[in-house]
Simulated assay, not measured.
Amino acid sequence: MDVDLGEDPLALDRQVCFALSVASRSVIAIYRPLLRPFGLTHPQYLVLLALWERTPRTVKDLCDVLRAEPATLSPLLKRLESLGYVSRRRGTADERTLTVDLTGAGHALRAEAEKIPYRVVETLGMEVAELERLHAALGRVIAATGRAERR
């Protein structure tokens, strides 16, 4: 494959990694004040999003869907439990299995959280169609990096 990366392939403003890094930090910063009233961090919010899609879930399943390591997820789940949003329980058939479920407060929080995506889109000032195209492109990047990791 003959790829033309231009005159300076190392120019910072041309690096996909740089653009993704800055965009990621910037978008997550938009979420901070929206999540603060609920005592949540962005990673905890992602866990709740996964649980609002389907609950209960095992920690293994959450790690898979969030592409996180158990050591990363464990403190997030403990904090969500201390906030009263989730409960954790060991499997009766297999004590190694830890299941996470939403509490009543966790289910109720969903109604408030439904406002968050609207506020993010409003803050970004971008058309929904443009954000959907960006999301699709990022999905392709995630898939490509997943294939590269498996090699």
Rank of each mutant, 00 (worst) to 15 (best):
V86E: 00
P117F: 06
G91H: 04
V3F: 14
D61A: 13
R67C: 12
E81M: 08
D64A: 14
L66H: 00
R25F: 11
A68I: 08
G39I: 10
L109C: 06
S21T: 15
D8A: 11
Q15G: 08
A93G: 02
T58M: 00
L134R: 10
R14K: 15
G104A: 06
R67F: 10
D8W: 04
K60V: 06
D4M: 09
V3E: 11
V22E: 00
T72A: 11
T92E: 14
P43T: 09
A111D: 11
Y118K: 15
Q15V: 01
L80A: 02
D2V: 15
S26M: 10
P70D: 01
E7I: 12
T103H: 02
L62G: 03
V3P: 03
L73T: 06
V128M: 00
D64G: 05
D2W: 15
A137W: 11
R96V: 02
L10Y: 13
S24A: 10
V65Q: 04
V16T: 12
D61H: 08
R150Q: 15
P43L: 00
I142E: 12
D61G: 08
V59D: 03
L12Q: 03
L20W: 03
L62S: 07
V120P: 08
R140F: 06
Q15F: 02
V65N: 06
L109F: 03
R150C: 10
A108D: 15
E7Y: 10
T97Q: 10
I142V: 14
A50Y: 03
E81Q: 10
G91N: 00
D13K: 07
P117E: 05
L62D: 09
Y45W: 11
R54V: 05
L76M: 08
A23Q: 12
L10R: 13
R54F: 03
R32P: 02
E114D: 14
L40S: 01
R110P: 03
E95A: 14
Y118L: 15
E127T: 06
L124D: 08
D101S: 15
P33Y: 04
P56M: 09
V86C: 02
E81T: 03
E114G: 09
G139S: 04
T97F: 08
S21F: 11
T145Q: 07
T123W: 07
R57E: 08
A111N: 02
L10M: 11
L20Q: 03
P33V: 00
L49K: 09
E95Y: 02
